[in-house]
């Protein structure tokens, strides 16, 4: 399962907070208990540390979504959901997740900049990326193939996560294919030429020597 960790760079903070709350909606939990509940429901794909869990719980408490029950003999903090927390869970499950700028954009930025640089073989950049993504996709597919039919609810959760990663990788490959075709067309029409540095831009707040150094190169 840990092979997944290599290419998971997702922003999970929001969903961790809401997931912990949704789990607490099933009944009161201790921090460590909550951590293991989250891990086993997500195939340990994004393992949490207990510190993270307690931080999140403190913020949820501040926002009035959870409250502390009395600490037990070992001084373990036990949390339970409030009415406001229960409503928050319902809102979360009923509303769409809005994707924020995430890992994929790193690649979009790279290609967008690379296409403006002289002497960069952008097709090669795309090819290198596609090769790497296809290898991840093969690895994920083999992992999935090993679990033919899920036997437990935990395996089912985990397969949902694997499928999600597979479809994301596929989308990336499609986008790369599309970009390659677009670039070939642009090259044919002469649009895809390097963007030279622009020295007309006001050099506010820059040391006076910068421009000359750049020109000297």
């Amino acid at each position: 399962m840990h092979i997944l960790e290599n290419y998971i760079l997702l922003e999970v903070i929001v969903s961790v907070r809401q997931s912990l709350l949704a789990i607490l909606d099933q009944g009161p939990c201790y921090g460590y208990q909550l951590k293991s509940e989250f891990d086993r429901r997500t195939g340990s794909t994004w393992p949490l540390n207990v510190g993270q869990v307690y931080n999140t719980l403190e913020r949820l408490e501040r926002d009035g979504f959870v409250e502390r029950t009395d600490a037990d003999a070992d001084d373990q903090k036990n949390y339970r959901i409030t009415a406001a927390g229960h409503a928050e869970v319902a809102t979360w499950l009923g509303s769409p997740v809005v994707r924020t700028a995430a890992a994929r954009d790193e690649l979009a930025i790279k290609l967008a900049v690379a296409v403006t640089l002289p002497g960069v073989d952008i097709i090669n950049v795309i090819q290198v990326q596609r090769g790497a993504t296809l290898r991840s996709l093969q690895e994920l597919t083999r992992t999935k193939n090993a679990t033919d039919d899920p036997e437990t609810a935990e395996q089912l959760s985990w397969l949902l996560v694997v499928d999600s990663l597979i479809f994301q990788a596929e989308a990336e490959v499609r986008w790369l294919d599309h970009s390659e075709t677009r670039l070939a067309r642009a090259a044919a029409s002469g649009v895809a030429s390097a963007v030279p540095l622009n020295y007309e831009v006001p050099k506010r707040g820059r040391p006076a020597g910068t421009t000359r150094v750049a020109q000297a190169r």
Partner: peptide, 22 residues
């Protein structure tokens, strides 16, 4: 790509040439 990923090797053709093998 999702289907190609079931293969052991993925060969990429461009204009009749193999340009990439994963």
């Amino acid at each position: 790509a999702r289907h190609a990923a079931w293969a052991d090797r993925i060969v990429f053709l461009r204009d009749g040439r193999i340009v990439d093998e994963s």
